[in-house]
Amino acid sequence: MGLDGRLPALTGKVGARHVARAADATGESEAWVTERLRLYAPLFDLDLDLDDAS
Rank of each mutant, 00 (worst) to 15 (best):
A25W: 02
T11V: 09
L37T: 06
G5T: 10
P8G: 09
G5N: 09
L46Y: 08
D52A: 10
D45M: 04
L48T: 08
R6G: 08
G27T: 04
R21C: 00
V19Y: 04
G12H: 06
E28T: 05
S29W: 04
L50G: 12
D51E: 14
G5D: 10
A9E: 12
L48Y: 09
A23W: 09
V14C: 09
R36Q: 15
G12A: 04
S54C: 03
A41D: 05
L7Y: 11
S54V: 11
R6N: 14
D4E: 14
R6A: 15
D4Q: 11
T11K: 13
P42L: 10
K13W: 01
A9L: 15
E35W: 12
V33P: 07
L48I: 08
P42E: 12
V14I: 15
A16C: 04
G2V: 13
M1F: 11
A16P: 02
G2R: 15
A22F: 08
T26L: 14
V33D: 02
D4H: 14
L43T: 11
E30P: 00
D24Y: 04
L46K: 10
L7K: 15
A31N: 11
A31G: 02
S29Y: 00
D4P: 03
D52V: 03
A31R: 15
R17L: 11
V19S: 02
H18N: 15
A41T: 03
L3I: 14
Y40R: 13
D24G: 12
D47Y: 01
A41Q: 03
V19G: 05
V33G: 06
R6I: 09
D45P: 00
G15I: 03
S29P: 02
L43I: 07
A41V: 05
R38I: 08
Y40V: 11
L46C: 08
M1W: 03
A31P: 01
D47W: 00
E35F: 11
L50K: 06
K13E: 13
S29I: 01
A22E: 04
G27V: 09
A9V: 15
A22M: 14
A9D: 12
W32G: 03
P42D: 10
A16Q: 05
T34V: 07
A20D: 03
T26H: 04
L39S: 12
A16K: 06
A41M: 02
G5V: 09
W32N: 10
A20C: 00
V14N: 05
A9H: 08
A23E: 06
L50I: 07
A25P: 05
V14E: 01
L7C: 06
D49F: 00
T11S: 13
E35S: 15
A9K: 12
V14K: 05
D51K: 10
A41F: 01
L10N: 03
L46H: 07
R6P: 00
R21E: 15
